[in-house]
């Protein structure tokens, strides 16, 4: 860790103008998403004769991860939403070479004194505010859906996918992940994929920024129950806003082990809040399609975690735990969504 701290200090010294005596302190790795190594640190320096400090989060590409994504896309999403009604940490520096820390990484300001862990949110002081947290969660998701990706600078109009076929692109992508990474046959996921292809959804009502992993566990909540930051944009892309809504209400995230989606709100309430904030309607047949798709996508991610361990690309027990803990539960969610659970 000492060597890593020294290397980060050299990098930060280059990024902050006129900074001297840059030191990295309290560097610690945290569980901040399995797709990148995440570190929390405090950097101290002297600037214009006075002592300064900043608390930062550094996200570095790992050797192995659940999701192979472009860190620049994730970084641009933080840039696009920073300062809007969608709370995100301030993105500071993106480094795409391996020159400084062997692998690409980016740095953000730390949003302090918050909690993200779903298990912690079910305990005091958050437990009595779950409804309020849920209301914010789906209101913010509605605001992401309402945002114009062209106006945010994330794409040009010509780069938007076709509203009629964005489902096909997403399904094809995650089916390919299963094809490449499965360690054993997946009859439930394959059955779901066939159903999805036989019953395509209506065209997207609009094309928007899809967070890609919007769930309890990927946002920061302060002790006053205010959501201060939406995190983990590594799977962000442009597409149908129902994709995010469906992902957010998947039963696999029912952390309270009851019917409250995300462990926070009733499904109906979450959808109603999202509809009001987005100005869109969650048409039931299309939402059901995206809910089943969400289970296929989740299965693909859990399958990939098993592949990483099996091929010795990663030694992270979190990936082994994911591969044992979630695929069968996800299959059961798939069966429930298909109406095949009894």
């Amino acid at each position: 860790m000492e060597e890593l701290a020294a290397r980060i200090a050299r990098y930060v010294g280059r990024c902050i103008p006129d900074a001297d005596e840059v030191e990295v302190k309290e560097l610690e790795r945290i569980h901040g998403g399995a797709s990148r190594e995440t570190y929390r640190l405090r950097v101290t320096f002297r600037q214009a004769g006075s002592s300064q400090q900043r608390r930062l989060i550094l996200r570095r590409d790992p050797a192995g991860s659940l999701i192979e994504t472009d860190r620049a896309t994730e970084y641009r999403a933080y840039q696009a939403f920073y300062g809007t009604s969608v709370p995100v940490p301030e993105p500071l520096w993106l480094e795409e070479s391996g020159e400084w820390l062997e692998r690409p990484f980016f740095v953000m300001e730390e949003i302090q004194n918050c909690e993200a862990s779903p298990a912690a949110l079910l305990l005091p002081p958050y437990a009595e505010h779950l409804e309020r947290i849920g209301e914010q969660k789906w209101r913010i998701l509605g605001e992401i859906a309402a945002a114009d990706p062209v106006a945010l600078g994330l794409c040009t109009t010509s780069q938007l996918p076709a509203a009629e076929s964005c489902w096909e692109r997403e399904l094809g992508h995650w089916e390919q992940v299963i094809d490449e990474d499965e360690l054993c046959p997946q009859p439930i996921a394959r059955g779901a994929i066939r159903w999805l292809r036989r019953n395509p959804p209506a065209a997207a009502a609009k094309l928007c920024v899809v967070h890609g992993d919007y769930r309890t566990g990927n946002f920061l909540v302060a002790a006053d129950a205010e959501i201060r930051g939406i995190l983990d944009w590594e799977m962000t892309h442009l597409g149908d806003p129902l994709e995010d809504l469906a992902w957010s209400i998947n039963r696999i995230w029912c952390w309270a082990r009851d019917d409250r989606v995300g462990g926070l709100l009733s499904r109906e309430r979450a959808i109603a809040i999202w509809e009001e904030a987005s100005g869109l309607r969650a048409e039931p047949a299309a939402l059901r399609w995206w809910e089943l798709f969400a289970s296929v996508k989740a299965s693909a991610i859990w399958i990939s975690s098993g592949r990483e361990i099996s091929d010795a690309k990663s030694k992270d027990p979190v990936l082994a735990f994911t591969a044992w803990w979630l695929p069968n539960a996800q299959d059961r969610v798939t069966l429930e969504t298909l109406g095949r659970f009894s």
């Binding site: 029912c254 952390w255 082990r257 069968n328 059961r332």
Partner: peptide
């Protein structure tokens, strides 16, 4: 058959 007791569903 595959369900483990710590699984979420």
């Amino acid at each position: 058959r595959r369900k483990i007791s710590i699984a979420p569903f």
